[in-house]
């Protein structure tokens, strides 16, 4: 059985339906992973945190509230877990082999991405510039434009106030504009009017 609405899925999952749990995982895992990479570059830590999150979900399913936004709940919990795990591991000396693996990992991401998605040069360029932004700016951009969270939700996910969130996004957009002024200009040339009528 495939649950078509988030609410039905959540309900079935809360009742202990394993299939619903797996569907919940499959529906969100790709975007959660993608989001995790914006929060930290430590891939193992992301995987561990996602694992923790889903294990926690299953074990405490009976006590979970009937949430109207499962997505929001998942992203906020994942971020809290990642931050918690980073803080917990903070006293552990940085393992340089880990860092090394990370650099390779990011290179292979780029390769995947070139192979799988036929994006234009502009997209590639924009993507690279985003990649060079500070982590938190990358995070807010992805939350806003890709994951579709509203400002109110972002404020809660990031644990910052409304003004800070706006400043953060504004800063990110400005940097992108400065770096891509040329790029966007070129595209404009080929751009067609949006209104169909």
């Amino acid at each position: 059985m495939i649950y078509s609405s988030d609410t039905d899925l959540w309900k079935a999952f809360k009742e202990g339906n394993k299939t619903a749990f797996e569907q919940l995982y499959n529906q969100h895992i790709e975007d959660l992973l993608s989001y995790g990479y914006r929060v930290t570059s430590d891939r193992q830590l992301i995987k561990d945190s996602i694992q923790d999150l889903f294990l926690h979900l299953w074990r405490s399913r009976e006590n979970l509230a009937n949430t109207d936004s499962v997505r929001f709940y998942l992203y906020r919990s994942l971020r809290n877990r990642i931050i918690h795990n980073i803080e917990k591991n903070n006293h552990v000396a940085i393992d340089s082999s880990h860092l090394f693996e990370n650099i390779i990992g990011e290179l292979s991401f780029e390769d995947d991405f070139i192979a799988n998605e036929h994006l234009t040069q502009q997209h590639l360029r924009l993507k690279r510039v985003i990649q060079q932004l500070p982590k938190r700016q990358q995070e807010i951009i992805q939350l806003r434009y890709y994951h579709d969270f509203s400002f109110e939700e972002i404020v809660e996910i990031l644990h910052i106030n409304n003004q800070s969130a706006r400043n953060l996004l504004h800063k990110a957009i400005n940097t992108l504009r400065q770096n891509l002024a040329l790029c966007w200009g070129i595209v404009l040339h080929f751009w067609l009017p949006f209104a169909k009528n």
């Binding site: 797996e22 995982y25 499959n26 895992i29 790709e30 992973l33 993608s34 989001y35 990479y37 914006r38 891939r43 995987k47 996602i50 694992q51 889903f54 294990l55 299953w58 990992g105 292979s108 991401f109 780029e110 995947d112 991405f113 799988n116 998605e117 994006l119 502009q122 997209h123 924009l126 993507k127 985003i130 990358q138 951009i141 992805q142 806003r144 434009y145 890709y146 992108l176 504009r177 966007w184 595209v187 404009l188 751009w191 009017p193 949006f194």
Partner: peptide
């Protein structure tokens, strides 16, 4: 027009690519 185009591009470009091979691995662990 410029802003519209920028948003359209940001929607696509802001997603961090992932290696999908990890997805079944994490599920198996869970």
């Amino acid at each position: 027009r410029q802003a519209r185009l920028a948003v359209q591009q940001l929607v696509i470009a802001s997603k961090q690519a992932i290696s999908t091979g990890e997805i079944p691995v994490i599920w198996t662990d869970i």
